[in-house]
Design a protein around this nucleic acid. Structure first.
Lengths: 229, 229
DNA sequence: CTTTTCAGTTAGACGCGTCTAAATCACCCC
DNA sequence: GGGGTGATTTAGACGCGTCTAACTGAAAAG
């Protein structure tokens, strides 16, 4: 049986593999999980002993296929829970992360199935992130880029909001910025700030770290996909 | 912060206090939680250090007021979850115990509030057990007795079914025996078995350990209460 | 090619919750 | 009221996940 902690490590490694170049450094894992480097080393050894990661001493780790499956399972739990909490229990979009972060390790497969059924097998969670299928196939990420990387005048569709901070999320939600919304880049200021205009006409100024967290795509491409399906 | 294990011990002590005469013996706790006596002793020491139980060496323990509050909180979580799983997620009455047994330790106060609201503040769970209020006042148990203690010909209302075994519960449910149902004691056989007749006309034979677990009351008294309220 | 730097690992410790084996207490019986 | 018996506690251990302090390897800088 895998502990909640092991699942946390596998999930973190999964995420870090996709954010940078594998293999993932021990120190990066340690930072992400807010533990000291020796702690990460010893956990990584444990995971390697169980063939959940491939490890080369002093080089870092990559997930094994089994490790990736576990990570996807946990991520599926997390995202289903986030969706369930918002849709069925009236949670605010911003509040769900913490609750899901804990519950993801404790729900049964039966619970997972029933929640998925109650929600009609959703494909994305409230933050716009794709939910792994029940067969845990690798996720093909919806192609998206950071809002920060686009120039003035571009019209964009918000695909995902990659932020965890409840206060920031509440602010963004209140300002009308959430997955599915369209906006136009109004100004890219050289002081590390981007201003966008929503369809409502309102403008919102966003500091760089927020503009990096907002993932966007071309509205026309998104529309095509919907047509295809 | 209290660990899930501590909560389990407190809940067990709470239950055992009500089943027998306090103080509760260490060995009884050990049996209930399926650990060895030394393990129970050491956990009980820890709980006493935190003022969650009052303990007299070699004599046993009783819950302190704080300990009782914690126990009630955990029981509230458990019973709300059981209700939620049956009502909202379509779980079978028999399956919910195990799931609730784990989740009760991991849901937030926010989750508790929202579940209670979604269910419209229920007063009993699917097994007929009362759900502690959000203020965690002591539960005044609905007066009920064991089906096994009644003679032939008595008409009874099933108040609670105090069984955990999913197979047994599924059988009882299938046979039509669940909280709220009325029945008549048909035969008390000297071989440790009770036969009851349901309003549907069907008879069901129940071995003693089951007849002990089924809590019943006088249907007329129950009706009076409903009228009062 | 040597030095320096810093990421990464090893060594040793601790708290939690558990165990087995051994000691000890409480209480009943004659 | 001395023994015996069974419940209870003490002693000492272990695995997990964590820590700090100390050491080692790898890789950049000169």
């Amino acid at each position: 049986m895998l502990s909640a902690k092991m699942e946390d490590y596998l999930k973190a490694i999964y995420r870090l593999e996709r954010e940078g170049e594998p293999p993932v450094a021990t120190s990066t894992i340690a930072e992400t999980l807010e533990v000291t480097p020796p702690t990460a080393t010893s956990m990584v050894e444990t995971l390697a002993d169980r063939d959940l990661v491939e490890r080369e001493k002093y080089k870092g780790v990559t997930l094994s296929p089994e490790g990736e499956t576990v990570a996807l399972e946990v991520i599926r739990h997390h995202r289903l829970l986030e969706t369930f909490l918002t849709e069925e229990l009236g949670y605010d979009w911003a509040e769900v992360h913490e609750e899901a972060e804990i519950l993801e390790h404790h729900i049964s497969e039966e619970f997972e199935r029933r929640v998925a059924a109650a929600l009609d097998d959703p494909e994305v969670d409230p933050h716009g992130d794709p939910i792994p299928s029940d067969t845990l196939d690798p996720i093909d990420d919806i192609p998206a880029s950071a809002l920060a990387d686009h120039g003035e005048g571009t019209r964009l569709l918000v695909a995902r909001v990659r932020d965890r901070d409840p206060e920031e999320l509440t602010y963004l939600d209140g300002a009308g910025i959430r997955p599915g919304v369209e906006l136009v880049v109004e100004e890219v200021a050289p002081i590390g700030m981007v201003t966008v205009r929503l369809d409502s006409g309102e403008t919102v100024a966003l500091p760089d770290h927020i503009a990096d967290a907002i993932q966007v795509r071309n509205p026309d491409e998104a529309a095509e996909e919907v047509t295809e399906v």
